[in-house]
Structures are given as C-alpha cells and as structure tokens.
Design a protein around this nucleic acid. Structure first.
Length: 490
RNA sequence: GGUCUCUUAGUAUAACGGUUAGUACAACGGGUUUUCAUCCCGUCAAUGCGGGUUCGACUCCCGCAGAGAUCACCA
C-alpha cells in the first residue's frame, strides 16, 4: 500500500474535546498502517481566539492517547516551522504566484460595505456571493494591511470523498474567498492548502463542516497547480441529547477530564475509533496495534454518531480487567497512583497492590478507588442501623443480642486462626466451618461479618477482604462493632 | 432561503440484491455461598414514509418527510 502522510492540524483555542479527537485518530491510524508520516501542525492564525496554554494541552492529550507524531512541535522536521504564525512569508510567496496569474487581488472594501452587500442580497432573496460585488478594476498586487482575495473560477465540480463517496457542487458555492487577512496572516482556507502541499500531506481528514468549502479548495488547488490530496469528511459526533454536534457548549469534556477520572487511554482510543467505524466483524475490543492494522476509511459511517459516556465506561472496565490479566498487578499498579483515597497515603504500595488485586474487577474508572476502598485504610464509622436494617439479618429475625453473640463466636473462631495461616484459603474454610457451627445461612453470617468489618455498601468476597485487612484489624473491628451493638441495646 | 450531507432497535453498528435482519452498550429477568461488580444464561427492541426496478430490496432509482452542516478578514 502507498505510504500515506497525514496530519492533525488543531487550532490552539482551548483543550481538545472529545468531539474532535477523532480527526486526529483516523489520520494517525492510516499513517501508521501504511508506514507513512503523521504530522502535527498548529494552526494559530487567529490571534483573537489564541489561547497561550492550548498548544501544550493539545500535545499532552495526543501523547497520553498514544498518538505520536513524526514532524511538528518538539520534533521539528523538513517542512519546519509547524506553527502557521511563523510561516507568514511562505503564504505570501504562494499568494504572489496567484497574483501574477491574476487569480488574487487586494481588496480594500470595508466590512461595512460587505455587510451592506449581504443585506441587499438577502432582501432581494438572492444568494450572497462576494464575486457579484467584485470591484471593477481589480488590484493585482499585494497591498499590506488590505485583505487579499481569490478570483473564483465558478464551474461545476465533482470529486470523491474517501468517506462520503462521489460528491459534486455547482458554481453557486464558489466565491472570492479571502486568502490573506488584513493582518497579513492567512485564512485557514488558504494556509492549509499551502502547508499540506509543502509538507507532503496526501490525506486530509476533517469534519463534515468543511464539506461546503471543498469546491473552493478545488479551485485553489487548480490555480496553484497542486494535485489535491485524498479528502475525507468525518461525520460529526452528536451530543448525548438533542441533535446537535457535540461541542464545548454542550458540555463536551476534554480528553484530559476523562484521563483525570481514571479512564485509560486504551479504552478511550478504542471507544472513539469505534464510534462511527467498524471493521465488519463483531470485535469490540481493539488494541492500538489492531486498529492500525484494521482501520479503513471506507468503513467509516457517513452519518453522525451519538456520543455515549456509558459505553466509554464499559470499555474502560473491560480494559482494566484485560490489562491486569495481561500485564499483572505489578505492571498495572503505577497507573492507579493518583486515584487512591487520602487515607491511603500512609500505606505501602504492597498493601495497596493487595487491595487493588481484590477490587479491580469492580472498577468502571480508576477514580472509583477513592470511594470504594476507604475501609481498607481507616476504621469505618460504625453504624449499627446497617446491621439492624439488613434484609437478610432482618428476615432471620436476629435480635441485637443474637447478633452480639454471633459476632463473639466469629471473633473467637477467627482468633484461633494463626497469624501465619491468615490467608484467603484458610479463611474460606474457617468461614465455611462457621456456617456449620452457627447453623446460619451464608446470606446471614456473611452479611453480618461483611458489614461489621466494612460498613460499606459493597466489598470484595469476604475471605479476600478479611485476608487483606489482616487478623488484628479484623478482630478489632468485630469487637468494636460488638461493643457498639451492646451500647446501642442499653 | 440557497447549497450540500445524512436516515437499521433507546444508543453504536453488521448484513456480494436472497439470513428467522446479526452483534455490543443500555434496560429488564435469572444463575454463580452475603453485598457491589465481574462472568454466564435469557427477555425486550430496528430497516423514516411513498412509489418504482426485480422472481426477490436494508441494499439500486425517483419523490416526500425529518435531521444536520454551511453561507466570516473562525478554523
């Protein structure tokens, strides 16, 4: 397959939100699949919307997702610089080529006059096209401080979009678009064409919102005698409710917000790649390598796909379990670093690893650790009502004094388990034996013990929980609960 | 309004013009010695509407409806 050079070309106006990372992922996958290059270019020509920290945010996001680039910021490359604001003279050079051919003109028409044209056309109910108001004598030279416009060549145009298929549009959408703004910086419309050409880009993937402009781009390619690259229009990702495209205004989260809540990059990449794409099989879980191998644009859906956070969490749960199974607890453990409760700080990694090993299969996101593991690190608040209102204990008709005596039996029995045998296996058989001696149902005895040591809404299998808590803590908590019940009963 | 695009269950999607229209998430029900989760089993649920082509249409064609995008010295 031909090596494809592709690019991601964000504007540094803020964080990358979840709705537009896909236009980085797909070109990346194709570049890697074909052994081509992936270029990162920062389109910072809009000084009004420029946000200083945004570039770093974008770089961090891509790195975290595992989308490494071959040329661009921090890397450099043969077509440097990769910030459009630093390429002013390059655009001017190309603009002059167009001027020489009488295909671009400086236009001093004021924004007010333009607005008046627009208004007049709309009153006449005819489509507004600037070329209908073009000055009579065009100024075919570059004038600083004045916008430079393209001389349109309106005619029917047809082309093939790698996602949408064969497309065509008439002359009525082709206009004298602005190439250079009055501040001398290029518009996106002009800059991307020049840059993609100079950088050897042969695949452009971007949102469908650019589709109506493509006839103008084709005219520009023609005038500049540049062969157009492969054009791919990616459908929008829709917000969870309504029919609007997912955007920051609809609360689209940044990629980093998902990272900070403990979503794994593997899961997010997997979810986003599969939102609107499918390889025709029933596979759901893809590694990055599998995506690189299997991705193709012709399987990209041409309709918009709705964003579904619930499914991200499903993917994330799957990925947590899969990575733990493949890499083991030790290798996975560093990823949990920022997600433990405050009280866990005093504990050693080894202990936290043991906690993690018995709880990881319950996690949707790593930050669940914060509210799911508290009782492993500090004594829980004793709430007798949790025992008294437990449905199994209630159903068994156990009085407070009966609970106290049960707890005593349990504590005595567990006290006889030697410290050296305090492990899940021994505990399991000890607990099973207790079922016999107390002649209680598992639901009753195990609920009692579970609540007495954790007072948590849920916890891992009982023998595992006790094994990790250790003998001293287990006995101390059983006794504390017992005392609290006795006090309560007075 | 002009131009362009899109339309399979609630959601994401699969189906050389020939399948009882498949899969996953969600929801609901059940099973795995307590809970929550995992895992397993099951239930519910879709081709927007109307024409045409064809022995046969989710698939091809036309019309309609609905939805979206765009019409900037923003990208």
């Amino acid at each position: 397959m031909k090596k494809l050079t592709s690019r991601f070309a964000p504007s540094p106006t803020g964080y990358i939100h979840i709705g537009n990372v896909r236009s980085a992922i797909y070109p990346y996958l194709l570049a890697r699949q074909t052994g081509g290059k992936f270029i990162l270019r920062i389109e910072d020509t809009d000084r009004a919307r420029y946000v200083d920290s945004a570039t770093d945010l974008i770089l961090d996001t891509l790195k975290w997702l595992g989308l490494d680039w071959d040329e661009g910021p921090e890397k450099g490359g043969p077509a440097a610089p990769y910030f459009q604001s630093e390429r002013k003279d390059i655009y001017l050079k190309f603009a002059k080529k167009l001027i020489e051919k009488n295909r671009a003109y400086s236009d001093a028409t004021s924004p007010e006059e333009i607005e008046a044209y627009r208004k007049a056309d709309s009153e006449k109910k005819i489509p507004y096209l600037y070329r209908n108001h073009r000055p009579e004598n065009l100024c075919f030279e570059y004038k600083e401080g004045v916008p430079l416009r393209f001389v349109a060549d309106p005619k029917p145009r047809s082309w093939t979009d790698a996602v949408m298929g064969d497309l065509s549009a008439g002359p009525e959408v082709q206009d004298d678009i602005i190439l250079l703004k009055k501040d001398g910086l290029p518009t996106y419309n002009f800059a991307h064409i020049v840059d993609d050409f100079l950088m050897g880009v042969d695949l452009i993937a971007r949102g469908v919102e650019y589709l109506p402009l493509i006839p103008n781009y084709l005219a520009l390619y023609e005038a500049l005698e540049i062969a157009p690259p492969i054009l791919a229009s990616l459908p929008h990702i829709l917000a969870p409710t309504g029919n609007k495209k997912l955007g920051k205004r609809d609360g689209a989260k940044s990629v980093t917000e998902y990272r900070d809540s403990g979503v794994l990059p593997e899961a997010l990449l997997n979810y986003l790649a599969c939102l609107g794409w499918n390889d025709g099989t029933e596979q759901e879980l893809y590694t990055k390598e599998e995506l690189i191998k299997k991705f193709s644009l012709d399987h990209v859906q041409s309709s918009g796909a709705r964003f579904d956070e619930v499914k991200i969490y499903w993917y994330n749960g799957q990925w947590i379990r899969r990575l733990v199974a493949e890499e083991g607890i030790d290798a996975f453990f560093p990823r949990t670093k920022d997600f433990w409760p405050k009280t866990a700080e005093a504990y050693e990694d080894n202990y936290k690893k043991r906690v993690f090993s018995i709880i990881y299969d319950r996690l949707k996101v790593l930050s669940n650790l914060r509210d799911m593991t508290g009782y492993f690190f500090s004594d829980p608040e004793i709430r007798p009502e949790l025992l008294l209102e437990n449905k199994f204990l209630k159903k068994a008709g156990l009085s407070e004094s009966a609970l106290v005596s049960l707890l005593s039996t349990v504590a005595e029995t567990l006290a006889n388990v030697p410290e050296t045998s305090w492990n899940a296996e021994t505990l399991k058989s000890t607990l099973n034996a207790l079922l016999e001696t107390t002649s209680r149902k598992p639901a009753e005895l195990f609920s009692l013990i579970r609540i007495a040591v954790s007072f948590a809404p849920f916890s891992p299998a009982l023998e595992l929980t006790l094994a990790v808590l250790g003998k001293n803590v287990t006995l101390a908590r059983l006794n504390a609960t017992k005392s609290a019940l006795l006090l309560d009963g007075e």
